[in-house]
Each structure stands twice: as structure tokens, then as C-alpha cells.
Simulated assay, not measured.
Amino acid sequence: MRFNSLLWASIASLSLWMASPVHANSQVSRLMQEGQRLVEGGNYAQALAIYQQLLQSESRNPRLHSAIGYIYAQQGQFAEAARAYQRAIELDQQNADFYYALGYSLGMMGENDGAAAAYRQAIRLNNRNAQAYEGLAVILARMGDPQGAIQAYRAALRLAPRNWSAQKGLGVLLLQQRNIPEALSSLQQAAALAPGNASIQLNLGMALLAAGDPGNGWQAIDRAANLGQRDADLLQQVAELAAAANQPERAIQAYRRLITLQPERVATYFSFGELLMQQNNPLEAAAIYRQATQINPKDPEGFYRLGKALAAQGRQQEARSAYQVALKLYREQNNPTGETKVRDAMRQRH
């Protein structure tokens, strides 16, 4: 969804208002011009101070409250933004953009019921607003109503067929519903519209795999990994997908990128080490687990896994030392299940 392009009207409409004969050449007009200039320059705190000053004399102007909501939303203060838009709506209940903005702000707060109601009212007032349909689709999908979300995405695309984010959202939902042909069609259109989007490539790859086209599927997933090499969540998905599909080299490459990107993320070391153990590579697995113990020396799981990797190499004395540390830490954490796991491993012969 494109929040800025639609809600810049909150500021732009104030320009028309301040140019009216009532306000022309007035102190209010001067302050409005200064506020708009500051918003355009990204100086939100100063612009907000000016608009709040204007509220002393213009408290019943809905566009002013909307402009304040816009500034709060730009700064990620969505609760404050929602309150400002609610005040704007109290003063002008026929403005579809205010309801759209309220829906966006409530959605960002996780208040899905309120967001859905606001988007629906925005659509009632202006059924040509593709972004309102898309916003409603996002919320309905989040609320567990995939069919309603699919209908809303289709409505958005009838109005704006080149909206790549709506094409992607529709494709992902159709993929989740196992409607592979239509999912593939939507995701291919999204990829054509936004070829540099890593998430689209990842979902396109999964759709191609589901359609029985592994060659093109893995090519798309490889493109996703290259495009999203700074996106830890996406790389985690690639690694898990490749590991589950018995594509160890791809998974290993993704895990290496993840460790470079987030070297303090211990869970990645555990997943990577487990994959290496499955690939009968306990030597490198031990090195990975040892790094995990250095990052978090209070986590017994790292020492337990290190012991397993060392024991698999026949390095029993080193393995026993690692197990003893794990046992001590589990005992300190009052974790009898962990203690039992370690003792069982210590009794095993490798």
C-alpha cells in the first residue's frame, strides 16, 4: 500500500484552504506555508509544532487534524495518527481519504477490526480507491478471511491492474489456497511489474515448484536470495526451504549469508549446524556450534550441540567437556529435561 501518495492530500488540501480569501495574507496562511515547507523537507517535528499552534485558532478544521495525523504516521506514531484522523472524521464524515488513513494507522497498530471497518467506509464513500481495497485485503488476510481478501485484491486490481503489491498479495493468498495456476499468473505479473523485488521472486519460485517446474523455481529462489541478501527474514525462508527440499548447497549458502548479516543470531548457528550434521560434516558443524557458545556462553543448548558434533568425530574427551558445561547450565536453569538429554548423550558411544 502506498500511504504517502494518497495522504499527501492532507497537506495539499491545506494549501487550497489557506489560499481562500478568508485566510490569504494572514498569519494563518504564513504558518501553513511554513508547515507545508517543513513537511516537504522531512522536518516533521517542527511542522507538527506549527500545526499544533494553528489548532488554537483552527481546531475545527478537519484537514488540519488530517495533516497532523499524516505527520504522526510518517514518524511511526500510529496511535497518535489514529486519534488525529478520528478527530478529522468527527469534523468531516464524508471524506474517504480520512477513513483510509485511519484504516492504515489502525492496521499498523494491529487493531484489525477497526482497520477493516475504516477501510470499508472509505470504499463506501469512494469505490474507485484501489488502495482502500488493497488495505482491506491485507487486513482480511490477517484476520483469517482469505476469500474476502482475495475478493478485495481482485477489486483493487480491476481499478489498478499495474499495482505490483496487490498482484503479489493476491498471488501469495492463492498459493496458500493451493490454487497454483492462478497464483502463478498473479506472481508472474507482479514479477514483471517489479523485477527487483526479492519477496516476489521467492513466492514465484515456490509457485513454480508447486507447479512441477523445479528448474525455473530454483532459479527464481536464487534470484530472491541475491536480491534480498540484506534481508535476514527472507534468507531464513530460503535456507529453510532449501534444507527441506534437499538442496543443501543452497541452504548452506543462505545460512552463511545470514551469519554474515546477523552474526549474533544464535538460532541461525543451530539451524546451520544441524544441516551440516545431516550432511555428515560434524567438523564444520562443531566450528559453527563453537561460535554459538562464544556468542551466548550461558545457553546450554550450544554446548550440548557442540558435544554431539565432537562426539561424531570421535573426539570423546572434548565432547565430554562440552557436555559437562551443558549439564551445569541446565542444572542452574532448573531444566531437568535438558539434564536428561545431556546424560543420555554422554552414555552413547559414537
Rank of each mutant, 00 (worst) to 15 (best):
F272M: 11
Q75Y: 00
A166K: 05
M346W: 00
E249D: 15
M1P: 08
A319P: 03
G169K: 02
Q151L: 14
I71P: 01
A254I: 12
A267K: 14
R162M: 04
E332M: 11
Y72T: 04
T268M: 01
A183M: 14
I200V: 15
I123L: 08
G114W: 05
A239H: 11
R250V: 10
E58T: 04
M206Q: 14
A326W: 01
A292R: 13
G307E: 10
M18S: 06
Y255I: 05
V325Y: 00
L329Q: 13
A155D: 13
I50M: 04
L306T: 11
Q176P: 06
A319V: 09
R265H: 14
L227S: 01
Q93C: 07
S199H: 09
L234R: 04
S185I: 06
G114Y: 02
A79N: 14
E284W: 10
Y269A: 15
N179C: 06
V39W: 00
A122V: 14
G35I: 01
L125Y: 10
M1N: 09
P336N: 07
E34V: 03
Q46G: 01
L327F: 08
K341R: 15
R230Y: 07
G307W: 06
E339G: 03
K341C: 00
L16P: 03
R315H: 14
A254K: 08
R305C: 05
A141F: 01
L327V: 03
A319H: 04
V28E: 09
G228V: 02
E284S: 08
G307R: 03
P297H: 15
Y289M: 12
Q262F: 03
N216M: 13
I200F: 01
M32V: 09
Q278L: 09
D222E: 14
G228C: 08
Y104I: 07
L175F: 13
G42F: 06
A79D: 14
Q201E: 12
E318A: 07
Q247A: 12
A251Q: 08
L310Y: 09
F98L: 13
R315I: 06
N95Y: 08
A239R: 13
G148M: 00
A239V: 09
G302M: 10
L48H: 02
Q36N: 03
R257Q: 15
T340I: 00
Q294D: 14
I68H: 04
A152N: 11
R250K: 13
A45E: 15
A137Q: 06
L187W: 07
Y100L: 14
I295L: 15
I221G: 07
L209P: 11
L327W: 04
G35H: 02
G169P: 04
F303K: 01
S321C: 04
Q93W: 10
D233W: 00
R343M: 05
A82L: 12
N179L: 12
A190V: 03
R2C: 02
G114P: 00
Q36G: 01
E58D: 07
E40M: 13
N163E: 06
R349F: 08
A81Y: 02
V22D: 10
V172A: 08
S57Q: 11
Y255T: 07
D231V: 05
V22S: 07
L234T: 07
L136R: 03
R30V: 05
D222W: 05
A130Y: 06
G217T: 10
L258A: 08
R178M: 09
S13D: 12
N216L: 12
Q27P: 01
N112I: 05
L102K: 09
A49C: 05
A211P: 09
K298I: 11
A115H: 04
P248D: 11
S271H: 09
